[in-house]
Every structure is written in structure tokens, then in C-alpha cells.
Design a protein around this nucleic acid. Structure first.
Lengths: 203, 203
DNA sequence: ATTTTTATGGTGCGATCGAACCATAACACC
DNA sequence: GGTGTTATGGTTCGATCGCACCATAAAAAT
């Protein structure tokens, strides 16, 4: 059935236009007419595929989230088999940094949506799940590292995971603002990881 | 001269209306008419005191920054004389957390402006200075702590300062999103501080 | 072959936006 | 007591917004 594919491709084409506009001028620049022009379709099509403007913003965010999760899984799979706790945690944290255009734009879009997350319940639900799941994932990996002797028993896995994720998130913002290069950001993350994991970086 | 006072009070009154609207719906809700209604003045007055809408957004941000710096100095001064490195660093980091309505609203406004920081050069300049200055301040305090024997010589002051500030910034976001209570945020920051500073919290 | 569904473009309407413009009290200055 | 300057309200205009509505070609279903 090529129909569902076409349908999803159209939605993606429109969603990408939303992202581009949001990264440049925030959500206030994401007007139906501008999105239509950016996507190269008629404004009527936005209504057809998404409905109202709020639903368009919500839909574009859902597609972005799906992309983020899929790409993260791909990159983690590229670490090879049995990658080791250190490498996996590193991979998760690096996913939060704007190391390439794709991740940079993704986090810019999240920033544009941020304030709306607090007011709009529908958006809040979409954004609520991800960060907490990330922390738990990292906490679990650190705890596993403790059982394998790669991490000291002295450290609090949950507290350390929360601060690592939060730190990566904060460093992300500084990179987006141009106050730090992506390379410097990676060095900072690795510095903290080296403290938590006794083994060296190269697995 | 009561005139300058009146002038600044009017600007502040209008700026506060901008902040309130920005925290609720982002910058797209900050329309001239809405700001005028929220501030209880006529729309004409916004033009009189700020000019165009862009200048209004810029002016409101400058007033917010002045407030932030002044309040931070006040709170740091409240630590008493000779507060110790640990307490000062803690005070700086806690200033980044939304521990009360004032700081919460302040960081919400920053979040609403964030994307625009990247596109608008005038706004970028206002936002560029603060974070880097904070990191350098914390790095200097940690280095002082090393000379006083309160901090181990093994740690990298600059790298640790950067990650502490970034971590506090990331934790701030989780608190704003309601994923963590302010109390939990303080615990997380203190956990990291206790690692860096060998002495106990209570100075 | 006809009828329904899908996919697309265009147009128009009421509301709102930013900003320029006009009017005028209140006060300052000489 | 004129005479500017400051501080304020109101009105209006062209542009744009979100969106409802209408038309229709292509495809699917019957």
C-alpha cells in the first residue's frame, strides 16, 4: 500500500517546514501561510493533513520525537555488540548535544516549544516522558556498572545519572548559543564520565 | 527629581506585564494590545516608553537582567561576611534554580526568549555575557578553594565549574517542567558540591 | 459506469496585529 | 501668561492571521 507512505511523507514534508521555521524565529514565525510556503504546498493542505494550527504544532513535535528516538537507537546500535556501560552512557549523553545539524536543529525546536510545554497539556504529555526515561536509563546503566566493578560503590547512581543528564542538557544550551564548540562540549562530558567510570574511554 | 523615577517605574510596570505574558504563552502572546491590557495602560504608552515591539522585548529583557543581577548580589550578601568558597558557589548555583516565584518566572522568561537569542543580534549580546561570566566566577572560586585546601588539587577547576553551572541549568529546566521539586533540585546540587568541596555544607 | 473517497488548490471572512497619526491635559520655563 | 515639553488616550490603516468554505481532478469502490 503506497498510500500510507505518501501520507506520512507529506506529513513529514510539512513537519520539516515547521521545524525550519521554528528554529529560526520561534513558534511565532510558524504561521500557516509561512509553513505552506516553506513546504512548497498550499495552505489548504496543512488543514487537510493536520487540522488546526495547534494540532499542526503537536503533530510536528510527535514526528520529531519519533525521529529522535529512532536515530538514537541507530547510533547506539552502531557501538557494536556488548559495548560496555561507559560507551552506552556516553552515547546517550552525546545524543543530547548538538553535535551535528540534525541534533542541533532538533534541540532548537525543543527550545522553541519549551514554554508551551508548561501551558498546553497536550504538548506537556509528549515532552514529559522522554527526560525522565533518560535519567532512569542512565541510572540503570550506572548501577549495572557498579555490579560489574566498573563503577565505584560509593557513588549514588540515581543522583549521578540525574546530574549527568542535566549537565549535558545545560551544555547543549551553551553550544546552541555559540559559547562553546561541540568539541569542547564532548570533552566536558567525557571529563565527568571518566570520574564516574573507572575504566578508560576507549572500550 | 521624581520624573526619572516615574519614568522607570512606568517602564518596569510595562516590562512586568511582558514577563507575565511571556511566561504563560511565550513571546507570541506578547502582543502590544495584550501587554497594554495586562499592564493596565493604553497601547499608545508602549510606543511612548519603548518604541517598536522588538525594542519592547529588548527593553523588558534588559530590565529583567538588571533585576537578576541585583537580587543575586543581595542574596549573596545575605550569606554574611567571609562566607567561605563552598557557600558562595552554592549561592551562585542556587540562583539558577527556580526556588521561588521570582526566580521561576525569571527563568521562564529566559526560556521564552531563548530561540530569539540566536537570531536577533541585539538580544544575543544581552544574553551572551551572563553565562560565561558565571562559569568564570565559579571557576575562580573553586581555584581559590584549592589554594585554601578546601578543594582537592586533582580536580580541574574550569571543567568542574562549567559542568556545575550547566548541571544547575539543566536541573532548572526539569523543575520548570514539574519533573522535579525545588527541594530535590537543591539536594542534587548539594550532592555535587559535596563532592567538589571536602568540607561539610554548614559553613 | 457510476458513486464515493482521497488529495489538492483557491478564495474569502472576521479578527487581530504593529505602528503611524491626531488630540490634549499637565507641568515647566521664562 | 504665553509657550514649549512631557505624558497620556484614542483612532485608524494596511497587512496578516487562522480557518471555514467551495471546487475538482484522480483514484477506488461498487
Amino acid at each position: 500500500m503506497p498510500r500510507q507512505v505518501d501520507h506520512d511523507q507529506r506529513r513529514r514534508q510539512i513537519a520539516e517546514a515547521v521545524w525550519r521555521l521554528a528554529t529560526c524565529g520561534g513558534l511565532e514565525d510558524v504561521t500557516l501561510r509561512q509553513v505552506a510556503a516553506e513546504a512548497g504546498v498550499s495552505a489548504r493542505l496543512l488543514q487537510y493533513y493536520f487540522g488546526t494550527r495547534d494540532q499542526l504544532l503537536l503533530g510536528a513535535l510527535e514526528i520529531l520525537n519519533d525521529d529522535a528516538e529512532r536515530r538514537a537507537r541507530e547510533r547506539l546500535a552502531m557501538l557494536g555488540e556488548a559495548p560496555g556501560m561507559h560507551a552506552v552512557v556516553r552515547g546517550v549523553l552525546l545524543e543530547l548535544l548538538p553535535l551535528d545539524a540534525e541534533r542541533r536543529n532538533r534541540h532548537l525546536v525543543y527550545a522553541a516549544y519549551f514554554v508551551r510545554f508548561l501551558a498546553d497539556p497536550a504538548l506537556a504529555e509528549v515532552a514529559r516522558a522522554a527526560p525522565h526515561a533518560l535519567e532512569n536509563l542512565v541510572a540503570g546503566l550506572i548501577a549495572q556498572g557498579q555490579e560489574l566493578g566498573q563503577v565505584s560503590r560509593d557513588i549514588d547512581a540515581a543522583a549521578e545519572a540525574a546530574f549527568l543528564v542535566a549537565g549535558a542538557d545545560g551544555i547543549q544550551a551553551t553550544v546552541l548559543l555559540g559559547q562553546r564548540t561541540p568539541e569542547e562540549a564532548v570533552v566536558l562530558v567525557d571529563h565527568q564520565l571518566a570520574r564516574v567510570f573507572t575504566a578508560a574511554i576507549g572500550g
